[in-house]
Design a protein around this nucleic acid. Structure first.
Length: 383
DNA sequence: GATTCTTGACAAAGGCCAAT
DNA sequence: ATTGGCCTTTGTCAAGAATC
């Protein structure tokens, strides 16, 4: 609309640059780089196998000796046992050490072999990775070039369209141009060149009186008015087109959003399904184990202090207000519990801990009898 | 200085269970 | 839906001597 403002050109340039940059963002290579950082996994993976350093002779010896020391000194704590081991090791003869040293030697050799093998393998992997990286880099480059080419082509198309819009009304001729047009044929017939014709008409035009010029000017004004009307219509049409395009785009966006949402829902659904099936599997497993283990005679866990309190509080509150909703009641009980005095709370705690003590004893007895029945069962199986 | 083994203790955090 | 506490899981720490 107001494109004739000063600085409009540079602004347009800037906008073009911006558009280019934004277009760059759209570049998304289809390949992905292999993620680094699997080192830890490798470590763990290999850590559980034979990648560990072999334990030195002393450690091997400790493994054997630990239980014996413990037998001789059942009261000894961890620290004491290790200290005793350290002291005892100093008096171990070379002959006694020999089997451990030999065992260590063979293990060490195997370990070194594995290490060497792994080193070679990792080097090979590095090479492979390097190659793959280069390959992907090349692919990315290729895709990027193609992307840019396409972008450029698109730009040209747009430019051409803009420049060549055949529906845009043509600028009307000025009075001078009308005059020149009228004179041209005659002047050309007098063997004048095109350049000379314009020079001549220009001189003639300058020397013409207003009266002489006026028919051309009238005509020019008429043409200009017509042009203005046409331009207005043209602009209106363009604007309408633009708004239509915008509307279409908006609707497209709406559709896309809906699609995206549906996709998201679908994804969430499948994720939920996976999660649920996993949970079910675990529950089934758990249930099986529970059924094997569970027992109606198994003592139940005692209620906590709060639960004991809530039982009583619920009773009295329900007597006061029978119509109360359960959730409100729970909130009430929670509040009352928090406002309880220290001694009162202590009383509930005592009750709960008494119950807990009894529970622990029951559990002990239960576990003993359980172990006994298990032993019986295994004995029965043996016979 | 990190690693190799042993056991028990400890801490933090999340899940579960108790009654209605 | 409420609170307390147990249980399980996971990781760390402690000491000894030898080895890389």
């Amino acid at each position: 609309m107001k494109s004739s403002k000063p600085g409009a050109k540079s602004r347009e340039k800037l906008q073009m640059e911006l558009k280019k940059l934004q277009k760059l963002k759209e570049f998304k290579p289809t390949m992905t780089f292999a993620l680094l950082g699997d080192k830890e996994q490798d470590k763990k993976k290999n850590g559980c196998s034979e990648k560990k350093r072999p334990p030195p002779p002393y450690i091997l010896w400790c493994k054997d000796q630990w239980n014996e020391i413990k037998k001789e000194n059942p009261e000894a704590e961890f620290k004491a046992v290790t200290n005793m081991l350290g002291a005892k090791w100093k008096n171990v003869t070379a002959e006694e050490k020999k089997p451990y040293e030999e065992k260590y030697k063979t293990k060490k050799e195997a370990y070194l072999l594995i290490v060497a093998k792994e080193k070679r393998e990792s080097e090979a992997m590095k090479l492979l990775e390097e190659e793959q990286k280069q390959k992907t880099a090349m692919e990315v480059l290729e895709q990027y070039m193609q992307f840019q080419q396409e972008a450029e082509r698109d730009n040209k198309k747009k430019k051409n369209k803009k420049e060549k819009d055949p529906l845009k009304p043509k600028h009307p001729m000025s009075a001078f141009f009308l005059f020149t047009n009228e004179r041209r044929a005659a002047l050309l017939a007098e063997n004048n060149g095109v350049l000379e014709v314009s020079k001549i008409t220009s001189e003639e035009w300058k020397n013409m009186t207003e009266k002489q010029k006026s028919p051309y000017e009238k005509m020019a004004k008429k043409n200009k008015d017509k042009y203005m009307l046409e331009m207005e219509a043209y602009k209106q049409k363009k604007e309408d087109e633009a708004t239509n395009l915008r509307k279409e785009e908006e609707e497209h966006m709406k559709l896309q959003k809906q699609e995206a949402l549906q996709l998201l829902k679908k994804k969430e659904k499948t994720e939920n399904l996976i999660k649920k099936t996993k949970e079910n599997l675990q529950k089934k497993k758990q249930n099986k184990e529970d059924k094997k283990k569970s027992d109606p005679n198994k003592p139940k866990r005692p209620a906590s202090s709060f639960i004991l309190f809530s039982k009583e509080a619920r009773k009295s509150l329900l007597e006061e207000r029978p119509e109360i909703i359960n959730s409100t009641l729970n909130a009430f009980i929670s509040l009352k519990w928090k406002e309880l005095k220290e001694e009162e709370r202590q009383a509930w705690n005592d009750k709960a801990s008494v119950a807990m003590e009894a529970y622990k004893k029951e559990m002990e007895a239960y576990n003993k009898s359980f172990a006994a029945t298990m032993e019986q069962k295994t004995e029965e199986q043996i016979y």
